[in-house]
Structures are given as C-alpha cells and as structure tokens.
Design a protein around this nucleic acid. Structure first.
Length: 350
DNA sequence: ACAGTTCGGGCCTAGGCTGT
DNA sequence: ACAGCCTAGGCCCGAACTGT
C-alpha cells in the first residue's frame, strides 16, 4: 500500500506497489534502449502474444510486440506513416504486477501530484467518522456546527443519522475504497481499467489497474477482489446499478469466485435526494460543475472510450489512451470531493 | 443501446378516533 | 356497539436516470 504521508512530487511507485514482486518492478524500469531491443526482437520473431517469454519479461517486450507490431497506417495515397509500437508503460509511470492469473499494469499517483491540496478535504472526511451529539457529520468544525436554538420538526428530522453517515461512523473514512471502472461497452463487454482511491492521513492514493489487452481482464479482476478485501466499504457513483453488477458479470464470464460484498455507498442516490430539484440532472459532470465548481477541459466522453481501447489493443499508440486514464482519475477524484458537500447541510450549488 | 436501482404515485388494509 | 371517516404504513409497478 502506498504511503500517503509522502510529500508532493516524491516518487510514489515503489512503496505504493509494495506487494508487487521486485522483478516485475525492475522490469517496468528497463532502459529505453533495452526495451527498444526487446521490441525489435519480438517483432522479428512475431510470436503469439507472450509466447516464449517469461512472464516478467513478457509484459514489456510483449507489450511492445503485442500493441501492434510496427503497424503501418495509410494516411495519404502516396504517404505511409510508420507507427513505432510502445507499451503503455512508455507513456505512464507504473509497474507490472505478476499475479497468479497473469500480468497487469498498475499506475499510481498521489492526490497532491495532481496539483490538488489534500486539506481541508481530508479533515472534512475525517470529521465524518467522528462522533458528535447532533448527528451532524461535521461536529468538530465550526463551519458545519449547528447553531444552538429552537428548531422545527423538519430540521430535527434532517439531523437523524442517515445510513450513509452510519458507514463513516462505523468504519471510519480510512476504511473506504472509491471505485470507478471503464469498460468496452454498457453490457457484456470487458472491463479494462479500474480506478481506485484510498484515503490516507495526509494524502489520497489514486491507483489504476489496467488490462493491456482483453486477456488481462481476469488478472485485473483478481487484483481488484484482493484489494477490496482490505477495505470495509465501497464508494461509487451509480455503482449499485453499473460498476458492481458489471464486475460480477465479468467474473462469471471468467468463472471466477468474485465477491464485492462490501457495504456500498452509492453517491448517485445521495446526490439525487439532495440536489435533484436544484440541478438539471445529477450526472457526475454536472455535480462537478455545480457543486465542486470545476469544469473538465478536454475530457473524453464515455461513449468514445470503448473505441479508444479497441484501437489501443489493435494498434498500440498508448498515448491515445491517456485521456481515458485522465477521465477515470477525474471521476474518482470527483467522488471523493463530493463527500463533504453531500453531508454538509449548508453546502451550496451554483 | 442496456440494465439495475431508486423514487414516487396509486391502491389497499388496519387501526384509531369520533359521532350517533 | 356500530358506522363512517381519516391517517399511516406496506406493497406493487412504472418511470426516470446513470454508467461505458
């Protein structure tokens, strides 16, 4: 697990991926020259994906080979662009996790590396886990403290502890796992990216599990299930309807004993109850704009994502997938940042 | 496009209260 | 004691909405 106490700009990968075998990490850091050579060898031999390579070396060499062996793309009738295949690890820092069901690429960052300040977000999350006499989630913070005065019935009723608040009180904010998935469609399609966020004392750890092709989906699901067992409750946006059933179906497809039987906080329904009469809709992007006052620049639409991934698997060019990683990261971050306003009775929308 | 969750409206029933 | 009315609660079903 990453050490979220680390300061801004420091390398997070090694401690963050502490459970990853050392060989896998060193492999991920092969020199560019060696990687290039491995790629050349793989292209010369043109083996089936991963064949004849050890699992540790397969990830990079096979990534170079399998992401589309020196594809040639006709641009104009008289001109051909030669595309050099590179692995995803060429464009995103990360490591290869060698699990029992094969390799998997893992990318990890700290919240502070995105240029964000973890406070007061972390103290507001922490306040939700604290006990106070009013049932208000922000008892320890003056901004959220209720005034002492005669109150009417609806106001008192609103202060009765919600089941959502109970999750924080019971398990604490450090025990929640934020989850968002990217898939190749809305049903019966592979999952290729899982974005996760864990809350630390002084930072948030953002981890992305990535299947570099369809065959790595099983390893991705295995790692997700393993990680989920380390947490007490799950936080998603529309995850009760989409993410969790989707993951369950994919596990069934792979005949895996897969379980995400954690208590589940779905922010969509909280947001609907809270803001449905004040906002045009309760999509995550809308909440980001009206509640968090943040507008996404250059974000990829969900409908484009499957095509981008299929292209990546077919042709390589991992830089085309960067917007997908970014999109997934923003979704996870937005979920975390929405928690305080969702519980704050005085939160405003614009 | 597809599917799961939640909400809200409509309907029914049980129980309490009131008037005769 | 009985009838009539009102309210609360439970159940069901369809609509709305969100994710990629």
């Amino acid at each position: 697990m990453a050490d979220p106490k680390q300061g801004r700009g420091r390398s997070t990968l090694a401690p963050a991926l502490g459970h990853i075998e050392e060989g896998a990490i060193t492999q991920a850091m092969l020199s560019r020259a060696l990687r290039q050579r491995l790629g050349d060898l793989a292209r010369e031999a043109k083996p089936p994906r991963g064949a004849g390579l050890t699992s540790a070396s397969a990830s990079s060499a096979a990534a170079a080979a399998a992401t589309g062996a020196a594809a040639t793309l006709p641009l104009f009738p008289s001109c051909e662009l030669k595309v050099e295949p590179v692995g995803i690890e060429e464009v995103l820092p990360g490591g290869i996790l060698e699990g029992p069901h094969g390799p998997l690429f893992i990318h990890e960052r700290l919240y502070t590396e995105l240029g964000e300040r973890p406070f007061p977000l972390l103290s507001n999350l922490s306040a939700l886990s604290e006990s106070d006499s009013t049932g208000n989630g922000f008892g320890g913070h003056a901004r959220f403290r209720r005034r002492s005065r005669a109150r009417d019935l609806p106001e008192i009723a609103a202060e009765v502890e919600s089941p959502e608040r109970g999750l924080f009180r019971r398990y604490g904010h450090r025990r929640m796992l934020f989850l968002d998935i990217e898939t190749c469609g809305l049903s019966a399609a592979p999952v290729f990216l899982v974005g996760l966020c864990m809350v630390g004392d002084r930072n948030l750890v953002l981890r992305q599990l990535f299947a570099r092709d369809y065959s790595e989906e099983r390893a991705l699901l295995e790692e997700l299930a393993r990680l989920a067992r380390e947490f007490d409750f799950l936080v998603t946006f529309n995850g009760k309807s989409f993410d969790v059933p989707f993951l369950r179906d994919r596990a069934t497809h792979h005949r895996m004993a897969f379980s995400l039987e954690l208590p589940h906080l779905d922010l969509l329904w909280m947001a609907r109850r809270r803001w449905k009469h004040m906002l045009p809709d309760c999509r995550l992007k809308t909440l980001e704009w009206h509640v968090l006052r943040r507008r996404r620049a250059g974000d990829v639409s969900g409908a484009e994502i499957p095509g981008l991934y299929h292209d990546f698997v077919k042709r390589g060019e991992p830089y085309r997938l960067l917007p997908v990683f970014h999109h997934n990261l923003l979704d996870v971050v937005a979920m975390v940042e929405l928690i305080p306003p969702l519980f704050d009775p005085d939160a405003v929308t614009y």
